[in-house]
Amino acid sequence: MEFTCKTVYDHKTLAAMSKALRKTMRKKTTWCEWLLFLGLVVLALGTVMDTSQSIWRRGIYLTVILLVLFLQWKGDYLDALFAMRKTPPGAEVHRARFYPDYFETEVAGVQTQWQYAKVHALVETKDYIILILGKNHAQAYDKSGLEGRSVREFCGFLSRKTGLHVQTFLR
């Protein structure tokens, strides 16, 4: 059984990969960040509500609150933006072939073989199947670019080969 997939690594793809990494490999770090930011927001709100503070200081702390909330809300979007800036020209299109013993990716004419044992987590989103290969490394495969069989069969194949359960994040 062989599967092939073509994926364009655009902003949407990179944001989905960032979200998958955040919800799997970086889960503990994410909670620590949320607690730190929540503490910062509470302290800043205390200063904003204190009428004895100058209007400039209250404005600065209100700006800090808005900035922290924006960073938490759009973190995956910003991660994707920075990842796109690091992507070399011509490396936007990824092709992959999945064989029984390994899978092979081709980016800008360079082929790399990967063992299924290197996969730490499998994630399914609305549009992608994402293989998590480390804390900062993932590969996304567009469901619409999948050839060979159905998405369900592909997920089952990956689950059998890696020994991992497919985590679903459809939002």
Results as ranks from 00 to 15, higher is better:
Asp127Val: 03
Phe70Cys: 07
Arg152Met: 14
Thr29Val: 13
Leu45Tyr: 08
Tyr9Gln: 01
Ile132Gly: 03
Ile65Val: 15
Ser150Pro: 01
Phe154Asn: 09
Ala91Asn: 15
Phe169His: 12
Phe37Gly: 13
Ser144Leu: 12
Asp50Pro: 08
Cys5Met: 13
Val41Pro: 02
Phe98Lys: 01
Ala15Asn: 10
Phe157Pro: 00
Ile129Thr: 10
Leu36Ala: 15
Arg58Gly: 15
Gln53Cys: 01
Tyr99Trp: 02
Lys23Asp: 10
Gly90Trp: 02
His137Arg: 02
Arg171Asn: 10
Met1Glu: 13
Ile130Asn: 02
Thr4Glu: 12
Tyr102Trp: 08
Pro88Met: 01
Glu124Arg: 02
Phe37His: 14
Met1Arg: 09
Leu133Gln: 08
Ala83Glu: 04
Val110Trp: 10
Lys12Ala: 09
Tyr128Met: 01
Tyr61Ser: 08
Ala138Gly: 01
Asp101Glu: 08
Glu104Trp: 00
Ile130Cys: 06
Glu92Val: 14
Ala16Tyr: 00
Gly75Ser: 12
Arg95Cys: 11
His165Val: 10
Ala140Cys: 08
Ile130Met: 00
Thr7Ser: 08
Thr125Val: 06
Cys5Gln: 05
Leu69Met: 15
Trp56Gln: 14
Gln115Cys: 02
Leu69Ser: 07
Trp56Glu: 13
Gly75Trp: 11
Thr168Leu: 09
Lys118Leu: 09
Leu66Asn: 12
Thr105Phe: 03
Met49Thr: 08
Gln72Phe: 14
Ser18His: 00
Arg160Gln: 11
Leu122Met: 09
Arg58Leu: 06
Lys6Ser: 11
Phe37Ala: 13
Gly145Asp: 07
Asp76Ile: 02
Gln72Ile: 14
Thr168Ser: 13
